[in-house]
Amino acid sequence: MTPAVTIAICTRDRARILAETLTHLRATVGEAPDAVEVLLVDNGSSDATPEVASRFADWPAFRSVTEPRPGLSHARNRALAASAAEWLLYLDDDAFVWPGWLDALRGAIAREGVVLIGGPIEPRFEAPPPAWFDPASVRRTFGPEGPLSDAAAREGFSGGNLGVRRSALEAVGGFDGRLGMIAGTLGLGEETELAGRLVDWFGNATWHAPAMGVDHLEPAWKQTPRYVARRAFVNGRQAWRYVGGGRGRKAGFSALKAAKQAGTGLLRLPLAVVRPGALHGALKGLATGAGAAVGVVRAARSSGTASGDA
């Protein structure tokens, strides 16, 4: 029987945490959940990931495939190609689903006309965060149950707990392979870019299911000023991609974002002297602004090159 839902877990060189995630998922959703399969996509791992997959070969709901091209977006598109299910639910390889997650998922996909669903993501800290780190920065919440606002629909949901209707994902061409994590290189924005294309094709066809939540591992190495700044910079640098219209409009949006974020960061910086928690917001604002400024320059150069070739 063709499953209604494929729970797709894309992974690369994360054998230890993958084993924990699969064990938790198996205990939560059961051995053979009705019309549901669990599909592991190994994105070219060089560690013990194949051995971990083999340990779950006796799980009736489980199977695995490989995607040799490095990149999370390629792995997600491999899941689309390997599945015949009506819905693809993408789950991070370090996400523990909540009790009732599967029931909430089934309720969301039963909504007529919906093509994109998501749920909250709460941090599961590997170690207590330092005083300057804002725990709220790694929480993903989307308001009450129901469709997102029209503006929020273009940003979509976080990819660690994201469902997409197969026909819609195929119609827009899947995930953009140029975006997202590629091997060990930090990349962001593939889910937001996809959400924008889905809105262009289908309008606001989103559904937020608050009970469809996960606890996402936040390792200690991500709670450093260097990582926070790097992630914010990358996010700011590609912000112009998320806006519709011509390249000039995108560059203009990115310029405004650069000015706003940098200004916010500068205003928060003095507060860090008396309130350590303000350092996180200041650092994030400055780095996002710097990244957005780089995005403006790149967009302008690209536009100039295109004009010169015309």
Rank of each mutant, 00 (worst) to 15 (best):
A82C: 11
P60G: 05
H74R: 12
P50H: 10
D47K: 08
S54Q: 14
L39M: 02
L72I: 11
V52G: 04
V114S: 04
A35E: 13
L116I: 06
I117L: 12
S45G: 10
F62D: 02
A32V: 10
A81H: 14
F56P: 04
P123G: 10
L80H: 02
D58Q: 12
P33R: 10
T66R: 13
R124G: 12
A82E: 14
L105M: 14
L40H: 02
H74Y: 15
A79W: 01
P70W: 07
A35V: 00
E37P: 04
E67L: 04
R63F: 06
D103G: 10
P128K: 13
A108P: 05
V29T: 07
A85H: 06
G44N: 02
N77I: 01
V65D: 03
D47L: 06
I117Y: 03
V41W: 00
P123M: 11
R55T: 15
F125T: 01
S83L: 07
S46W: 05
R78H: 08
V36S: 02
G113W: 11
E67F: 05
E122R: 11
F56I: 09
G100E: 14
V97H: 03
L80V: 01
E37K: 04
N77A: 09
R69F: 05
E126V: 09
P128D: 15
R69W: 09
D92A: 13
F96H: 14
D34W: 04
R63Y: 08
R124C: 12
F56G: 05
A110E: 14
W59Q: 02
D58I: 09
W101T: 00
A75I: 01
D34I: 00
V114K: 03
R76L: 06
I121W: 00
G71K: 01
P99N: 11
A27M: 08
R63H: 14
S73T: 14
V115P: 01
V29D: 04
V97C: 09
W101K: 04
I121V: 14
E112Q: 15
R106N: 13
